[in-house]
Write a protein that binds this DNA or RNA. Structure first.
Lengths: 227, 227
DNA sequence: TGTACATCAGTGAACGCGCGTTCACTGATGTAC
DNA sequence: TGTACATCAGTGAACGCGCGTTCACTGATGTAC
């Protein structure tokens, strides 16, 4: 065991500075996310596997997470934050209210499909399996999902206010749209043998129906080629 | 180890008759289904657990199933058959075409929700995780899902033929409805903290929209209080 | 300014457990002669 | 009609593996005196 070994073997991770132990928590979440993305399944999340992934000893996880469910929960929470932000960004630059809601819906589907099959799309099967059981902390769960729900209500309301939607229940209609989007992400991915129609066409048409979009803008002085 | 033990301990299962070894296969599927229903997760399917459930030795499974994925696959196939049949039954007695499609949709959601959370609703997350990988035998996968898809096309077509639907694409429209139903089953179950609207109302309204159901029946001599 | 000590951050060997798989086997039943 | 043998259906002990968890520890850094 000469000095050479210190160079070839993993050099015994240097500790985080005092009071900064929580930094490891973020590394654990990042490692778990990588693991899910690489293997395509949250099955692969075990304490030992995550520890291996980021090069620490398995017991070092204990101070930060009680069990694998807590780690997965943290991954989901992180992804959901990014997801909510991406949805917001997708719609925020768009002035036409119908185009805005469609842009958000397209972003939803794109994000959902970008993730590997089983878990990490926060939407795919939002809180699966045993996780669902422990994440039952309803207040937190709600705090996670309400932001994009509220944003969705706003998008439908925008169409109503502009006279582009006949909806009288923005609250309920956006949930129906959400259900459709969930299926639009999940079904063609898992049942690959059926001849699913073009995603964007389905999305555009079906969202328009569920949002009760009206064909004519109703505004008198609609500029035509104005874009 | 007297004769009394033969009565109190499990009496060393008597073999199936010669040539009937395949009977055990059905027992294994039934045991696995029970296990999933009881634990609420296909995680609980292990060769040993299934063997325990039906009182056989673990190696006895090997001749019938190569691994746990094959067992889960068989459970899904069995459930899908029952599911397709239930959908058919739900709609077959109904003469009004709009009511028929709604009845099938209600049956879909009821069946989906009747099953424990994660797997066994064949629809919930149809072919999850590692299963998806191995069930890639596309021809079989298609043979499983095409029957209820075709039935769905027929239901929409029935509405079109009766002048109750403005749909020009029964094929695509039923798929959009399927996506909605998938979300209607999955989302309120997994995200319990949001104030989901009444399921039946959402279903009735949204399916009518996606199937492009027209408000007026168009038939001249519509009987009013006829039931 | 020193120095002893407490605390923090993390290690590494060892454990018991359930898992899938192997291997030699048992006992009933059909079949060849 | 007997009898030896092959086959089928399934058993039970043993294995090696990865897992979560325990336990005593190490070494750096801040703090009290």
């Amino acid at each position: 065991m000469g000095a050479a070994d210190d160079l070839t073997t993993a050099p015994a991770r240097q500790h985080n500075p005092r009071g900064q132990g929580h930094r490891l928590r973020d590394e654990i979440i990042a490692g778990a996310t990588q693991l899910i993305e690489r293997t395509g399944s949250e099955h692969s999340i075990t304490l030992r596997a995550v520890a291996r992934e980021i090069g620490i000893a398995a017991p070092s996880i204990a101070p930060h997470f009680a069990d694998r469910a807590e780690i997965i929960d943290a991954v989901v929470a992180t992804e959901l934050d990014a997801f909510t932000k991406a949805l917001h960004d997708a719609a925020s630059g768009v002035t036409d209210p119908v185009e805005a809601i469609l842009a958000a819906c397209r972003a939803y589907v794109a994000l959902g499909r970008a993730h590997p099959k089983p878990l990490p799309a926060p939407l795919r099967t939002p809180l699966p399996g045993d996780l669902g059981r422990r994440a039952a902390s309803d207040a937190r769960d709600r705090a996670r999902h309400e932001p994009h729900h509220r944003a969705g209500v706003g998008l439908v309301q925008g169409c109503i206010d502009a006279g582009r939607s006949a909806s009288t229940d923005a609250f309920g209609d956006i949930l129906a749209i959400w259900m459709l989007l969930h299926g639009l992400v999940a079904l063609p991915t898992s049942i690959t043998s059926l001849p699913w129609p073009d995603t964007d066409r389905t999305l555009t048409e079906s969202v328009a129906l569920l949002a009760r979009i009206q064909p004519a803008p109703r505004r008198r002085t609609k500029a035509r080629g104005q874009r």
